[in-house]
């Protein structure tokens, strides 16, 4: 039985998850959940972001890690292999996901970091298509990859296999436009489980709220709900809201459909869209620019509208 579960997680971390994402993506597309918002520019961006990290970035980091660790930490290989499985599981689950919580939160709360994470929020839809959508710099410095690689070298590779597998399933489910959590809010006997679930892990309701295009309608909360696998961090730090509702719109209000290559490779390539956060002289954070100024900049209106 254990061997069978082990096989599942081994495959999940290699070809399994991309296959699950493709199947859910096909189902979402078949149900029309992208509502014709998947334009050519969005399609190219989503597909490039889905493929490049898996084919280039992760193998590169693993290769570099295998080269560097024996040089800098020659005596540390498997030094913690004695740690019992469930303690290893807990140490990695906390270490990995809390690090990602901070990586994510700081990209929202420190203005100079926002443009590295903006690509993930520019999609005007939720679903498998946008789940992997990230700027290349954000992906390369995805801090918990390094932490996890280090822990594998130190001998915690076996629990890492299970933590990363479970985490991938939870984060994929939270991005899906299939609202799997809805029965937990509507069916009476499931409600207590739902209460625990929505405080413990990311669900479509809480994570969709993070991708909302509004923060003041009582549902959307893009200024919070930063948790990836665990929502618990948002509960502890007071950065989350739970409404059991789904936002009416996704993305960012000031989105200018920037070129896919600018969204993927900013600041190496910049956008030609005037007033864009990704343009050479664009604002650091678009929604911090008063609408009046932004409209004047675009030459559409010269009188105050705020």
């Amino acid at each position: 039985m254990i061997q069978y579960i082990e096989q599942i997680f081994t495959h999940l971390n290699t070809w399994g998850l991309p296959v699950i994402m493709l199947l859910i993506g096909i189902a979402e597309f078949a149900f029309g959940l992208y509502e014709n918002q998947w334009t050519k520019n969005e399609r190219i961006l989503d597909i490039v972001c889905f493929v490049v990290p898996k084919v280039v970035v992760r193998p590169f980091i693993a290769y570099v890690g295998l080269l560097l660790f024996p040089v800098f930490l020659p005596n540390a290989k498997n030094i913690f292999a004695w740690v019992p499985f469930w303690w290893g599981f807990a140490i990695i689950a906390v270490g990995d996901d809390l690090t990602q919580y901070w990586y994510h939160r700081l990209h929202h709360q420190l203005p100079w970091l926002w443009r590295f994470h903006r690509t993930h929020h520019s999609a005007p839809y939720m679903g498998m298509a946008m789940a992997s959508r990230q700027n290349i710099i954000y992906t390369i410095f995805f801090s918990q990859i390094y932490l996890t690689t280090t822990l594998v070298y130190l001998g915690l590779g076996y629990p890492v296999l299970f933590v990363t597998g479970i985490k991938a399933l939870i984060t994929t489910g939270a991005h899906s436009s299939i609202k799997w959590d809805k029965p937990f809010y509507t069916i009476k006997w499931l409600k207590p489980i739902g209460w625990v679930l929505e405080r413990f892990i990311s669900t479509p309701a809480t994570h969709h709220a993070h991708h909302a295009d509004s923060d003041d309608d009582g549902v959307g909360h893009y200024k919070g709900n930063f948790g990836n696998m665990f929502f618990l961090w948002d509960v502890i730090f007071g950065t989350g809201i739970i409404t059991r509702q789904y936002p009416s719109g996704y993305g960012i209000k000031h989105y200018k459909q920037e070129e896919w290559y600018a969204q993927f490779l900013w600041p190496i390539f910049k956008s030609r869209k005037e007033g864009s956060e990704l343009a050479p002289n664009g604002p650091m954070v678009g929604d911090a620019v008063p609408l009046e100024k932004e409209v004047i900049n675009r030459g559409l209106l010269t009188e105050s509208i705020v």
């Binding site: 019992p84 807990a90 906390v94 809390l98 901070w102 709360q109 730090f237």
Partner: peptide, 19 residues
């Protein structure tokens, strides 16, 4: 951020301490 980073240090250490 500073307050929550300090709380996080405790959270990181918690599973190791419990073990």
């Amino acid at each position: 951020i500073i307050r929550d980073v300090l709380i996080s240090l405790v959270l990181y250490a918690l599973p190791v301490i419990l073990m």
